[in-house]
């Protein structure tokens, strides 16, 4: 950004920014607890449609996993606060979000012990080890999920049919996710089922509709940067679309990419994490497209059917670098 600022040609004092000339994108780690608190609870509210759909589709197991994960996350936060001699930070709601997000990414049949472990790792290693809210490099919920994926590869990939499909019995019927079906059996799932979520999958990822309702609320209230879901989802449509256009028999179409797996959940609620996503606009676009590229490569050519988690974690890791290289020029400073 090269905005001429005549007032700044010399002088050590801070530059007065001309109105409406410089686009400012501030880091949103607010330091007043009240604002952080209110944003965090709004995010919880925005997640509630997805959580409700999870409970509707998967019944009691979903309730148990969500409660376990949230309680374990909050307790871990409280214990670490005590150990570090800090004031309790559990009322800011961030641990609740982490616990809730983690739960929504778990398969409905996942064990309670594993859920607790994931929540402890998410808060303990993913967040508090780096210094608490605002200092973590990776999205804590996804870090916890990555730990679980590496620890319990079978438990994390055993899916059960939604109660609405299974008839009377809720558990016991194992199924594959739409992406798993595509990758290993080359079978497509209907868009309608994908959209409302009547498919196998993690608790909160199945219903695109429910996530979109909450996600749009976040965007409208400006708690999430609209550029992230737009660049991520748009990138997947374009990159996935290119592959599909060249070999429609070999690769799934872009709409399938969009609606299946955890893409929409990840794009609205995890990639947009205020702490771990970039600040400048250019960096945000690169961030979104980078995630899209990694996701499509993993889905089409990787050993795993799904790549949302790794695409977000990997781009989280380069976020500081993106911020650094896209930093707007600072005018008015004397060259040393």
């Amino acid at each position: 950004m090269s905005i001429p600022s005549p007032a700044s040609s010399k002088g050590k004092s801070k530059l007065k920014e001309p109105e409406n000339l410089l686009i400012l994108a501030s880091s949103p780690h607010l330091h007043t607890t009240t604002s952080t608190q209110s944003i965090m609870w709004q995010v919880v509210l925005a997640l509630s449609p997805a959580a409700t759909m999870a409970i509707y589709y998967f019944r009691w197991p979903a309730v148990v996993i969500i409660l376990t994960s949230v309680i374990a996350a909050v307790l871990t936060e409280a214990v670490i606060n005590r150990l570090k001699g800090e004031t309790l930070t559990i009322t800011d709601g961030s641990a609740v979000i982490t616990g809730l997000l983690l739960a929504l990414t778990l398969p409905p049949t996942f064990s309670i012990g594993g859920t607790i472990l994931g929540a402890v790792v998410a808060i303990g290693i993913g967040k508090q080890l780096f210094g608490g809210l605002g200092y973590n490099i990776f999205n804590p919920a996804l870090l916890g999920r990555a730990f679980l994926q590496a620890s319990f590869p079978i438990g994390m990939t055993t899916w059960s049919t939604p109660a609405t499909l299974a008839g009377s019995a809720v558990d016991g019927v194992s199924t594959a996710t739409p992406l798993g079906l595509y990758k290993f059996e080359h079978a497509l799932t209907g868009y309608a089922d994908l959209f409302v979520g009547n498919v196998g999958g993690s608790l909160g990822e199945t219903s695109a509709l429910a996530i979109l309702i909450g996600g749009l609320y976040l965007l409208i209230r400006r708690f999430a940067d609209w550029r992230i879901p737009v660049s991520y989802l748009g990138g997947v449509v374009i990159i996935g679309g290119i592959f599909w256009a060249f070999a429609p028999n070999q690769f799934p179409d872009p709409v399938f990419h969009l609606l299946s797996g955890g893409l929409i959940l990840g794009a609205f609620f995890m990639a947009t994490d205020m702490v771990t996503s970039p600040i400048t606009h250019l960096a945000t676009w690169i961030y979104g497209i980078g995630m899209a590229l990694i996701l499509v490569i993993i889905r089409l050519f990787g050993g795993l059917p799904e790549g949302v988690m790794y695409s977000i974690l990997l781009m989280n890791a380069v976020t500081p670098l993106l911020n650094r290289y896209t930093r707007p020029k600072i005018f008015g400073e004397v060259q040393s």
Binding site: P153, I154, T157, T158, F184, G303
Partner: peptide
């Protein structure tokens, strides 16, 4: 033969 769960590949 039956595949190993989680190790289809």
């Amino acid at each position: 033969i039956q595949a190993i769960t989680g190790a289809t590949i």
